[in-house]
C-alpha cells in the first residue's frame, strides 16, 4: 500500500525524468545532429550559457502574457455572465463567438501590427483574444446549468435576476471559471509567443526566432523549456487559487 502511494506521489517527477532520459538517450544512440534535435543536456547548457538574455526575454514574455491574461479574465467573465444570464444574448452572440474563436490567431497578428505597430501591444492583444474564449464559455455554462428547481424556489420568493445571479449563478460557475483559468493561462502563453515570433524584437518568441535563423538550435530548445516551465508554474498557480476558492467542488479530497 505504502509503495503504491509513494509511486502515486512521485509519478509526475518519474514521468518527466523518464521523458528527458528517453530524449537524451535517443539523441545519443541515434546520433541526431544538434541542429536537428539537440539533447536535453545541450539545451540546458545553452540555457545556462545564454541565461541573462533568456531571463530578460522570459520576464518580458511573462509580463505580456499576464497582462493579456488579466484582460482576458475581466472581459471573459463579463461576457460569460452576460451571455449566461440572458438567453437572448446567448442566442444572438453565439455564432459571432464561435466564428471569432475559429479564426486562427496567427492570422490576426499582422492586422494588430498594422494597427498598433511592432511591440508589446499586439502580443498582449493576441494573448487576450486567444485566452478569453474558454473563460466566457465556462462561466456561461456554469450559470446556464443551474437547476430549474433552484431558480423556481428563488423566483417564487420574489428574487430578482440579479439576486439569482449573485446567490446562485456566480457561485456555481466558480469551479467552471477556475477550470477555464488553467486552460486560459496556457493559451495566453501561446498567444504571446506567437505574436512575439511574428512581430516583436523582444521576448522569448523573438529570441527563438532569431536563434533558429542563426541555427542555434540548442538555444531554441532552451527557450522552449523556459516557456514550458513558465506554463507549468502559471498552471500550478491557477490550480492553487482554484483549490482555495472552489474547494467545495473537489469533494474527493475531503
Amino acid at each position: 500500500m505504502n509503495v503504491h502511494r509513494l509511486l502515486h506521489q512521485a509519478s509526475p517527477w518519474l514521468a518527466t525524468i523518464l521523458f528527458f532520459l528517453a530524449w537524451e538517450v535517443g539523441c545519443r544512440v541515434l546520433k541526431i545532429p544538434t541542429f536537428v534535435l539537440p539533447s536535453p543536456s545541450e539545451s540546458v547548457a545553452a540555457l545556462i550559457e545564454y541565461w541573462p538574455a533568456i531571463w530578460i526575454n522570459a520576464v518580458h514574455t511573462m509580463m505580456t502574457t499576464l497582462l493579456g491574461f488579466a484582460i482576458a479574465v475581466v472581459f471573459g467573465v463579463l461576457l460569460g455572465v452576460i451571455v449566461g444570464a440572458s438567453p437572448l444574448l446567448y442566442r444572438a452572440l453565439n455564432p459571432l463567438l464561435i466564428g471569432f474563436n475559429s479564426v486562427p490567431k496567427v492570422a490576426l497578428v499582422p492586422v494588430l501590427v498594422l494597427w498598433f505597430g511592432i511591440g508589446i501591444i499586439p502580443a498582449v492583444l493576441t494573448a487576450f483574444v486567444i485566452a478569453f474564449f474558454p473563460i466566457t464559455v465556462n462561466v456561461a455554462t456554469g450559470i446556464v446549468t443551474m437547476e430549474p428547481e433552484l431558480a423556481d424556489v428563488l423566483r417564487s420568493l420574489g428574487a430578482s435576476k440579479v439576486d439569482i445571479l449573485w446567490r446562485v449563478g456566480l457561485p456555481r460557475s466558480l469551479p467552471y471559471f477556475f477550470a477555464s483559468l488553467k486552460i486560459a493561462i496556457t493559451l495566453a502563453f501561446v498567444g504571446a509567443v506567437i505574436s512575439e515570433t511574428i512581430a516583436s524584437n523582444v521576448g522569448i518568441g523573438y529570441l527563438m526566432l532569431s536563434a533558429s535563423s542563426t541555427f542555434r538550435v540548442p538555444l531554441v530548445f532552451a527557450a522552449l523549456l523556459v516557456i514550458a516551465g513558465m506554463g507549468i508554474l502559471m498552471y500550478a498557480a491557477a490550480a492553487l487559487v482554484e483549490r482555495r476558492y472552489a474547494g467545495w467542488a473537489i469533494r474527493s479530497t475531503l
Binding site: 437547476e147 428547481e149 433552484l150 423556481d152 417564487s156 446562485v168 456555481r172 467542488a249
Partner: peptide, 12 residues
C-alpha cells in the same frame, strides 16, 4: 415555500 424531488441545495 417550495420543495422538490431534487433537494436543489447549494453545495458551496
Amino acid at each position: 415555500g417550495m420543495a422538490f424531488q431534487n433537494p436543489a441545495l447549494l453545495p458551496w
